[in-house]
Amino acid sequence: MRERLVIALSAVLLCLVPLVVPNYTLTLIVEALIFGLFAMSLDLMVGYTRLHSFGHAAAYGMGAYSTALILLHFNLPLPIGIILGVAISVVIAIPIAWICTKSTGVSFAMLTLAFAQLGYAMIFRFKDISGGSDGIGGIPRPAGPFGIDFFQSKSGYFYLVVFCLVGSYLLCRAIVTSPFGAVLTGIRENEAKTRALGYNTRAYKMAVVVMAYGFGSLAGALYTPFAGFVAPELFFWLVSGRVLIMVIVGGAGTLIGPILGGICFMLLEQQLSEVTELWPLIFGSIFIAFVMLAPDGIWGLLTKRFRSKQVVPGDGEDGETSRATP
C-alpha cells in the first residue's frame, strides 16, 4: 500500500516537472526516462527469469529504426508510428527468442549479443534503407490522430514518455505478480524443478524474452521521434552493457530499481560529463563501489534503510528484497 502511494506521488511529481525545469534540462530528463523504461524491460529477463541478455541493444535499435522508417516513409500519426514500430520489433523478436531460449547461461547471453551485433552489421549491409554509418536524420514528429498535437512540443512529449513509462511499469508489475510471473520466478530459482512440475519452461522463457524485447523496443521507438535521428551505435554492444549495468546498479528483480538505475545513470552521466573530463573514471569507480558494497543496488539500499526503520525485526517479509539480485 505504501509503495503504491509512493508511486502515485512520484508520478504526480513527475507531471509537475515540465513546469519548473528549464528547456534543456527537460531534454535530459526525457532521455533519462526513456532509458529507465529500457532498463526496466531488461529486468523482466535478468531479474525475474535470470536470463542474462547481453544484446538488449537489439530491442532498442529495432524499435528505433522501425519507428524511424515508418515515420519517414508513411504519413502516420506519431502514436500509430510508435505502436507499429513496436509491433514490427515484437514480430522480429519471436524467432530471436525461439533461437536464444534453446540455450541457457553464458551461451544465452552470447546468442543475444550475436543478434544485436547482427543487427548492427545489417544496418551497414542495407545502406540504402538504413543510411549505413550516417544513420537516419530528419525524422519528423507528426501530429497525432484527430489533430491532437500536444506531444509535438517538448513538454507534451515528456508527458507521452511519462505515460508510456508508468503504463509499462504497471503492465510489467501485473505480469510479474501474475501466475505467469510466478512461473518465471520458478525458472529463476530452479528451472529443472519448474519443468518437473509440468511447466513448459521454454515457452515461458520465449514469452518473457518477447515481452522484454517489446518493452525495450518501445523505449527505442520513443527515443526516435524525440532525438530526430537514429544511428547504428544504438545496436552496439556497449549499449547492451550499459543497460545491463543500469539494471544491476538499480537492483535487479524489482522493476522500480532498474527504472531508477536507468534515470540516475543517464542524469549523472550527462551532468558529470559536462563538469569534468574524468567522469568515466568516476563512473567506473561507482560500478565497482556498488558491486563491492551494495550488491542489492540502489533500490536495495533504499528499501533496506526503509525497512530497518519501519519493520520489526523477524517480520516474515525480511529477506525478500535481498534475494532479488540474481
Partner: peptide
Amino acid sequence: DAGAYLMLTFGLAIILAQA
C-alpha cells in the same frame, strides 16, 4: 554472482579506457 563480475570488469574497462 555473474552480474557482479560483469559490473566489476565492465567498470575496470571504462576506467582503463579513460586512463
